[in-house]
Design a protein around this nucleic acid. Structure first.
Lengths: 229, 229
DNA sequence: TCGATATGTTCTCTTTTAGTTCACCTTTTG
DNA sequence: CAAAAGGTGAACTAAAAGAGAACATATCGA
């Protein structure tokens, strides 16, 4: 999954975060890897983010967070859990939360590429609460959108989408599609004879046309959350 | 995730909360960090809040709450030094810690035109629940978007937007603007000398340029919810 | 209710630190 | 060989940080 350099950088960041709680700057990473230019670091960081090993805030200094490490796919930390004590595993996914409240807690399963398909789903043990009205009929989970291939449908980079776990979808629905059992992507689904088209909502991207048996629907889009800063 | 200064301040707050149960004032934090001005503290606090390490109530003295720490030491939940919320609404401040829930109920105040301004706010006495992370610092309410003038920013007809009640906004923020005290509209705000520009995100609409005193900011956009059917 | 005090917020200005992008080159690998 | 990954350096943009002052807002007692 990772190249030697990417792994080396990831380990360095992890070590720095563990020892000081402060993530290293690009210059510090550059020195740690024995490089002479920051731009190489920049590329490695992008690669790590794309593969879901780290998360960062765009254009923010030292704002790197480690999500998982290559050996144990277990997250470093509890993600964005606000509370640690009563949180436990007791909560079943999509369970109604506080009494009288019309909201539900659903698990956040990681990132999904709206652009180039990158990675399959993974569990990060973090939860998001959503309005009850947004729940589909079945089991739901959330994904963070990465990439811009769905911008023309108003789905932006960084948005959180709510997905209902289903394995079939109607023509024209936006779905999480697993291609060749390894790459998950968010696209509009079109059926075309024995082929399936995964249609982006961005003129800069191409529609993928695939044999139906290479594509597996993992869920359909039922809601979207966005936060402005 | 944090810069050195941010981390230093967070540790100081944590230490004070643990030892005295009361969060330090801006002046005390200023002294603790060896600064000569409070404004720097203010910025650090904002950065910590943006990164989800603390939560606070606007304009309330010593109302800081630690949500997590960089090394993921046990959060200081519980001792709510924060008294009486100014929100008339059901903000269920106790629910989050008890149930691991992190959502709030906010009132839905009706529709807002993203296109041509149509109507001022009205009360429909209905509520929406939103994830806690989406709450601004202050009082929030929701509006249903009508029209398509903000589509290029991914705000579509029928979306629900979360608005933080404020009466000022920075240049470039998306705001609910009341024009001539009668027409509310959702637009990007630009200041231009004594004029205010209300900029749509749709090439088919025109920017409105108005004398500053004809425009009143009623809130700023902090979140967005969408439901797919 | 008025006003004093404590506290939080904003603004402008300046300096420093950090992140981004680009063009071009080299190395590794399938 | 060609593609992907890695490396360099420079120019550029943006964020972090510090200072100081004016202003806004709570809180509480007279």
């Amino acid at each position: 999954m990772l190249t030697a350099k990417q792994n080396q950088l990831l380990l360095f960041i992890q070590e720095r975060l563990a020892s000081s709680g402060v993530s290293p700057s690009f210059d510090e990473m550059k020195d740690a890897l024995g490089l002479k230019s920051k731009s190489g670091v920049h590329r490695l960081i992008n690669a790590l983010e794309e593969r879901g090993f780290i998360r960062r805030m765009a254009n923010r200094a030292r704002a790197i967070e480690i999500l998982k490490t290559p050996d144990n796919a277990a997250p470093q930390r509890g993600g964005d859990n606000v509370v640690s004590a009563p949180f436990g595993q007791a909560k079943t996914p999509s369970a109604p939360s506080a009494a009288g409240d019309d909201s539900f807690e659903i698990p956040l399963h990681g990132k999904i590429a709206a652009g180039t398909p990158i990675e399959a789903l993974e569990n990060r043990d973090s939860f998001v609460s959503i309005p009850g009205a947004m729940m589909g009929r079945g089991d739901c989970y959330a994904l963070e959108v990465s990439g811009d291939s769905m911008v023309e449908m108003g789905i932006l980079d960084g948005d959180t989408v709510v997905i209902e776990s289903v394995n079939t979808a109607r023509d024209g629905e936006v779905v999480v599609a697993l291609v060749d059992r390894e790459e998950a992507t968010l696209k509009t689904l079109r059926r075309n004879g024995q082929f399936v088209e995964l249609v982006p909502a961005n003129r800069d991207y191409q529609t993928q046309v695939l044999e139906a048996d290479r594509v597996q629907v993992q869920g359909r889009l039922v809601g979207l959350l966005r936060q402005y800063h």
